[in-house]
Computed example of a mutant assay.
Amino acid sequence: MLPLLLASSSVYRRELLNRLQLPFICSSPDIDESHRANESAAELVKRLAEEKARALADSHPRHLIIGSDQVAALDGRIIGKPHTFEIAREQLLAASGRQVSFLTGLALLNSDTGQCQVDCIPFTVTMRQLDIARIERYLRAEQPYDCAGSFKAEGLGVSLFQSTEGPDATSLIGLPLIRLVDMLLAEGVQIP
């Protein structure tokens, strides 16, 4: 089996990948993550996932490189990582009582053959009705400023959800393991 490389510095993705009980290393690619004009959210995350994997191909020949990227979208408009308390509060107020789509791009690049599998895994969250006090308590406790849409589903963020719908709950955290297993199996990787 070719060595696995996770093209990410995300602790959340690393924790998810550990679930597969496969050895892997991590390296963070340096790419431009800007949204291009007329690019849909699905196109964006697929492109970025593949670019992250390809950015490490030269420095990691003969590896299986996993790239992933996620955006949240409200009414078809991409809402990114808030980075600040104020922006996070605005994002959560806008999402209150509504559906938020999470789109996670996933790429598995065989840097030896150049073969790259790419997909986009959707997941929808219906939010509870949220008031300012609840949002601010959540933000102070969780500080989800590095999470798309201000949602930290692996923590207290789940308390903001009324319901969820999608093919793979791990995609909500940023690395769709069910689809990744399919890709790894297609590359001949034996999952324990």
Rank of each mutant, 00 (worst) to 15 (best):
M1P: 08
P3N: 13
P3D: 09
L5K: 05
L6R: 03
A7S: 10
A7V: 11
A7R: 00
R14N: 08
E15G: 14
P23S: 15
P23G: 11
P23V: 14
C26S: 15
S28C: 10
P29L: 10
D30P: 00
I31M: 07
I31E: 02
I31P: 01
D32W: 08
E33D: 14
S34E: 07
H35D: 01
E39L: 09
S40L: 07
A41G: 06
A42R: 03
E43P: 06
E43I: 08
K46N: 05
K46W: 01
L48N: 04
E51Q: 15
K52M: 08
A53Q: 04
R54E: 05
A57F: 07
S59H: 11
S59F: 04
H60R: 13
P61L: 11
R62G: 07
H63T: 08
D69E: 12
D69I: 14
Q70H: 07
Q70T: 14
Q70E: 03
A72P: 00
A72F: 03
A73E: 04
A73G: 05
L74G: 07
L74T: 09
G76P: 06
G76K: 04
G80H: 04
G80L: 09
K81M: 11
T84R: 13
E86Q: 15
I87H: 07
A88F: 06
R89P: 02
E90K: 15
L92H: 02
L93H: 05
L93Q: 12
A94Q: 10
S96C: 12
S96I: 12
S96R: 09
G97F: 07
G97D: 06
G97K: 09
V100F: 00
V100I: 15
V100E: 00
F102V: 07
L103T: 02
L103F: 03
T104V: 11
L106N: 00
L106F: 05
A107Y: 03
A107S: 15
A107R: 03
N110C: 15
D112C: 13
D112N: 13
T113A: 13
Q115G: 08
Q117T: 07
Q117H: 12
V118I: 15
V118S: 03
D119C: 12
D119V: 13
C120M: 14
C120N: 05
P122K: 10
F123K: 03
F123R: 02
T126V: 14
M127F: 15
Q129C: 11
L130N: 08
A133I: 13
A133Q: 13
I135E: 02
R137W: 01
Y138T: 09
Y138K: 09
A141K: 14
E142G: 11
Q143Y: 04
Q143I: 11
P144Q: 10
D146A: 12
C147G: 07
A148I: 04
S150D: 06
S150E: 04
S150V: 10
L156P: 01
G157M: 12
G157D: 05
L160H: 03
F161D: 01
S163G: 12
E165C: 14
T170F: 00
L172V: 11
G174A: 08
G174T: 06
L175Q: 02
P176E: 04
L177K: 08
L180V: 09
V181R: 06
D182S: 11
D182E: 09
D182K: 08
M183N: 03
M183I: 08
L185Y: 03
E187L: 08
V189S: 07
Q190V: 15
I191N: 06
P192A: 12
